[in-house]
C-alpha cells in the first residue's frame, strides 16, 4: 500500500514534467498527439508493474472476470439509456481489491467493451478515465468517509462528472486552438445531463447494492486469499 502511494506520487510528478516539456518543446501545436503520449506514459507504468508483479493464476482470472462483468454489465440495461453499472463494478473492484487491481479492471473493461462496440480515438481516454476511477477508489478505501455509505455515494457521484469531463477532454484537446470560454462551456454544458445520469445511477447502485456486492467480493477474497 505504502509502496504504491510513492509510486503514484512519482507518476504524477512525471506527468507534470511532461506537461511542461510539451509546452516548451512542442510549439508546433500537435496537442492531440502530445495528449495521447501523456496518457500512454501515465498508463504504461501501471501495466508494466502488473507485468513484473508475481500474479497468481487465480488472481489473473479473477481480474479478467471482473473486467468482463463490468463490460457485459451494459447488456441487461440496454433498455435504459445512460444507466450502466460499469462504473459501479469498477469502483467496487477498486474498494475491495485495491488501487492497482482497480486500475487494471477499469482499463481492461474499457478495451474489452470497445472490442465489441468498436475501437476509436476515444479508447485511451476511456481506459484512462475508468482506470483512474478504479485506482482512486482503491486509494481512498481506507479514508474514514469512504467507509460510510454516503461517502461512497458522494465518490460515485463525483466520478460521474469526472468521467464525463475526461471524455470531453478528447474533443477539446483535438480542437484546442479553437479553445475559447464559449466553446469550453458549450462542450461541458452539452454533457451535463449525461454526466448527471451517470452520477445518479452510480449513487443509486452504490446505495442499494454497494454493501451486497462488497460482501460477495470480500467473501471470494477471504475464502481464496486473493489480492489482499
Amino acid at each position: 500500500m505504502e509502496r504504491s502511494r510513492h509510486y503514484l506520487v512519482f507518476v504524477s510528478i512525471v506527468l507534470l514534467i511532461l506537461l511542461f516539456a510539451s509546452i516548451l518543446f512542442f510549439h508546433y501545436k500537435a496537442y492531440l498527439l502530445v495528449s495521447l503520449l501523456m496518457i500512454a506514459s501515465i498508463m504504461i507504468p501501471f501495466f508494466v508493474r502488473f507485468e513484473w508483479r508475481d500474479v497468481a493464476g487465480r488472481e489473473i482470472v479473477l481480474l479478467a472476470m471482473l473486467a468482463a462483468i463490468a463490460a457485459v454489465g451494459r447488456v441487461p440495461f440496454a433498455g435504459l439509456p445512460s444507466v450502466q453499472p460499469t462504473s459501479f463494478i469498477i469502483i467496487m473492484a477498486g474498494i475491495v481489491f485495491g488501487a492497482e487491481s482497480g486500475f487494471i479492471v477499469g482499463a481492461v473493461a474499457a478495451i474489452v467493451s470497445n472490442f465489441f462496440l468498436g475501437q476509436g480515438p476515444w479508447t485511451p481516454w476511456q481506459m484512462y478515465a475508468w482506470g483512474m476511477m478504479g485506482m482512486t477508489a482503491g486509494l481512498l478505501r481506507q479514508a474514514w468517509w469512504m467507509k460510510s455509505s454516503w461517502g461512497k455515494c458522494l465518490f460515485g457521484f463525483a466520478w460521474g462528472y469526472l468521467f464525463g469531463w475526461f471524455m470531453n477532454m478528447w474533443i477539446i484537446v483535438s480542437n484546442i486552438e479553437a479553445l475559447s470560454w464559449d466553446f469550453f462551456i458549450g462542450i461541458y454544458a452539452s454533457s451535463v445531463y449525461f454526466d448527471l445520469a451517470h452520477g445518479l445511477s452510480n449513487v443509486f447502485f452504490l446505495a442499494v447494492f454497494g454493501a451486497g456486492w462488497m460482501k460477495i467480493l470480500q467473501r471470494v477474497q477471504r475464502k481464496y486469499g486473493l489480492l489482499e
Partner: peptide, 11 residues
Amino acid sequence: AFLIMLSIRFV
C-alpha cells in the same frame, strides 16, 4: 494481453 484475451473470452 493474456488478461485481455481471457476477459474477451468471458464476454
